[in-house]
């Protein structure tokens, strides 16, 4: 066991605005730390880190370690991993919770390689079992759920999927502590020369509360417009099946499934998607699934909460209109 019972959160943020998943983890960190008699803390790195402290504190972190160093900007991986590993070595938390997002997965991997931490991935719940902090994760295509912990005298990292835990305002004013240790020369191995935002490329599917997804049945790239309209009306984002991506109708970052993203929204609307196992494994833990498909025998109807056997281009535009009307009424 590590020297303390402290539970930490690695905060992912956008120029000082913590991502929702960071708040989900802060609330869980407080729950675990309270049960173990330790404290909940968060680590925020890069420009804007200090601005995260208020919100992360409100959601549960008692202490927020911050460094505003430019070299720790969100897109730098190795420098963040090095500073985090040094801080963990110095302060000895028992567990560090990370968002299971691409950048944080890399940072956790590199920090753990530096200090020999044990990493549990794809977590959908974190709890205490017989005094150990345990992570539950789906395995074998989601057919079983495995609960595991890290054995031995090493720090434990848990990568938790966005939307798996409930963020709650259980904290207060966090104490902000500046991180003394800086970036070492030998971790500056890769240089970010540009950060490009592409119009229409935005696909923050892992954190989305609502996803409207299209498959082969959508029929062509121009037809994704009706899905975009519905997503916009619902405040959601557009996803796609592999068939739609491979056909070139929509870009790869939108792909949900085995060779795409794993998502866990409140609402997943599958339009013209048959629901093959490769797609199912990426979206089966959505809270509510609605499927619209012409083919009444499509496998998606075997696990959708509501199925509509019908034409996507009939149903979806009417649904967008219906939702607009209902929103105006309230």
């Amino acid at each position: 066991m590590s020297a303390t019972n402290d539970i930490w959160v690695f905060v992912e943020h956008e120029k000082g605005e913590p991502k929702k998943v960071s708040l989900e983890l802060a609330t869980k960190a407080k729950e675990l730390a309270d049960a173990l008699g330790g404290s909940a803390a968060a680590v925020a790195l890069g420009p804007g880190a200090g601005a995260c402290a208020k919100k992360v504190g409100l959601y549960g972190a008692g202490t927020v370690f911050v460094s505003e160093d430019e070299q720790l900007a969100s897109y730098s991986i190795t420098p963040q991993a090095q500073v985090l590993a040094d801080l963990i070595g110095e302060r000895q938390p028992r567990v560090v919770l990370f968002p299971a997002t691409p950048a944080a997965k890399d940072i956790a991997a590199q920090a753990s390689a530096r200090i020999g931490a044990g990493v549990l991935t794809n977590s959908i719940d974190v709890s205490i079992k017989d005094g150990a902090v345990a992570s539950t994760a789906p395995a074998f295509g989601g057919s079983i759920e495995v609960t595991s912990t890290v054995a031995g005298d090493v720090p434990q990292f848990i990568l938790v999927r966005p939307n798996a835990l409930l963020p709650q305002q259980v904290g207060g004013d966090a104490q902000v502590v500046a991180i003394g240790a800086g970036v070492k020369e030998d971790s500056l191995l890769a240089k970010v020369v540009d950060v490009v935002v592409e119009a229409g490329a935005e696909a923050p599917l892992e954190e989305a509360a609502i996803i409207v997804s299209g498959g082969r049945g959508v029929g062509g790239p121009e037809n994704f417009k009706v899905l975009e309209d519905l997503a916009k009306e619902l405040g959601g984002v557009v996803g796609a099946s592999r068939a739609a991506v491979d056909a070139g109708w929509i870009s790869y970052p939108h792909q949900v499934g085995q060779t795409g993203k794993t998502v866990k929204p409140n609402l997943y609307i599958a339009c013209g998607i048959s629901g093959a196992i490769q797609h199912k494994v990426g979206m089966q833990t959505s809270k509510v699934i609605v499927a619209i498909n012409k083919n009444g025998d499509a496998p998606i109807f075997e696990f959708a909460d509501l199925g509509i056997v019908g034409d996507v281009f009939e149903v979806v535009p009417k649904l967008t209109e219906e939702i607009r009307k209902r929103k105006q009424m309230t």
């Binding site: 079983i144 759920e145 495995v146 912990t149 699934i289 109807f301 696990f303 056997v309």
Partner: peptide
Amino acid sequence: ATEKVLGFVPAKARQAGKVVKDDG
């Protein structure tokens, strides 16, 4: 390896919900 498995349970399988044929 540091991971210690504590247990397995079958995941709760999703059930088929209501399926409605579109009549407009």
